[in-house]
Nucleic acid binder design. Structure first.
Lengths: 142, 142
DNA sequence: CTCTAATCTGGAATAGTTCAAGTTTGGCAC
DNA sequence: GTGCCAAACTTGAACTATTCCAGATTAGAG
């Protein structure tokens, strides 16, 4: 598994360092985690890693396309290891929980704007807003 | 025009105050403005309005559905007066410019998730990412 | 093994937003 | 019109997520 991550780093010509491997492992095990959580997960293995290093690593990995950064309105940045398939997300309005949703229509970019205003569009990002199962039942209970 | 805004405030049982009228006027004249810009526009008419008041007003108006808050990843919050038609936005990756795009398919919610993961979805938000005409030509020029 | 650019550490700074306590004011009852 | 009071506003400080900076460390090419 570690060698798998190592190969991915080399494939995009990034140096193989412990913090980077730890971040990749953390994102592989946990979907949609925020930066603080990544820091905590990384420090479980490498206690001395600085928060700045994690920010740097996440940026490097995002730029290289190894991880994807998502940032629904009103939340801090979250990261996921699932990339390249243009899937979307459902976000719970009350607790912020995030779940994956496969592309609604065909492949990326799965949507075409009716009038692009002269913009050169390269991605259509979809966020579904709603209430997650937990919050829905909790609301009924009260 | 002022009485138009006054009527809208009363319609959602919000008190009619100068700061609120000024914010509505500012959003009516300028699309997709951030909070700082709203503050500047409001202060052009009412120099003594606090930034906190503007934040409060924007929240009250958003909660009441009179304005819409948008917050593309990596930017601060922006507000627009166009509400109720479920239109979407194109955002320029290099300069952050935002333009309106009519709903791609039908009416709100114009998209249905292929698998909703048990969530009760009430809105599908679409953000198109790309390059605006200005930035496109600027890049060619260089 | 050596060298050096890339990366990481520690600490301080910034932007955007929210919190808290006290003052003012819009809208209703009289 | 006058008085009342909850809603709205002012002032000023606090907070969170993120970035900047300067110096120490280290991966990996030669």
């Amino acid at each position: 598994m570690a060698s798998e991550f190592e190969a991915r780093l080399r494939a995009v010509s990034l140096r193989v360092t412990r913090p980077r491997l730890a971040v990749l492992a953390a994102l592989h095990d946990h979907a949609h985690v925020d930066t603080d959580t990544v820091i905590a997960l990384v420090r479980a293995e490498l206690p001395r890693v600085s928060h700045q290093a994690v920010y740097d690593v996440l940026r490097a990995l995002t730029d290289a396309g190894l991880v994807r950064r998502i940032e629904p309105a009103g939340t801090s940045a979250r990261y996921e290891a699932r990339v390249g398939d243009n899937h979307h997300h459902v976000v719970c309005r009350s607790c912020g929980a995030i779940a994956d949703v496969d592309c609604a229509v065909g492949h990326a970019p799965c949507l075409t704007a009716s009038d692009d205003q002269g913009f050169m569009i390269d991605e259509a990002e979809v966020v579904y807003w709603g209430t997650c199962p937990d919050c829905a039942t909790r609301r009924i209970d009260q």
